[in-house]
Amino acid sequence: MQRRILKRLTLITAAALLLGACEGQMGTKDDEGMEADVVEGSMDTAADEATTQGMADEGTFQGHPLDDPSSPLSQRTIYFAFDSSHIEEENRSIIEAHAEWLARHPGANVTLEGHADERGTREYNVALGERRANSVRQLLALTGASGGQIKTISYGEERPAVEGHDESAWRFNRRVEIVYRNRE
């Protein structure tokens, strides 16, 4: 009995590991616009988050449209003020671009990962992260994406993008990450 449980646990852990690994990779591309700043302020993130990407010089972008650095679609992290889920004006165009992409690609879908900085209490921060993810979800749905394409999850303060205990880290941790599960 016990052995079976252990075995099941191992399987779950292995699955979680795999999922975690995939996610890590997507995360790499996600943070792009902010990368330089992030690396400066942190020591720990460099290993798993900083990958450089060559831009074909002056020419047209060759990769997937979602990765085109000149497109708002390449921006997939929305940042928030402390204890707020209000979407700042400058982020609306990013979210709308994703909504449009999702509307034109019904087979594509995303997970919105809500996060909080470490201040305050952990379960409240999980709730706050969910509220942030929901406010991005609402705007996505309002501007063209269908509800079935969007999943949300909140990690609260459990998975900071940047390690650190002051505003230089916190501002990168109060965020929603738009993670494409299927890009089409």
Binding site: I12, A16, I153
Partner: peptide
């Protein structure tokens, strides 16, 4: 776990713990 674990809570008899685990990508 490779996923976050939080909010451990002792049962009043001290025999069990309730907790939140994100294994499987869901809390």
């Amino acid at each position: 776990s490779t996923q976050p674990v939080l909010s451990p809570a002792w049962s009043p008899d001290g025999q069990r713990l309730a907790y939140v685990s994100y294994e499987g990508q869901e809390p």
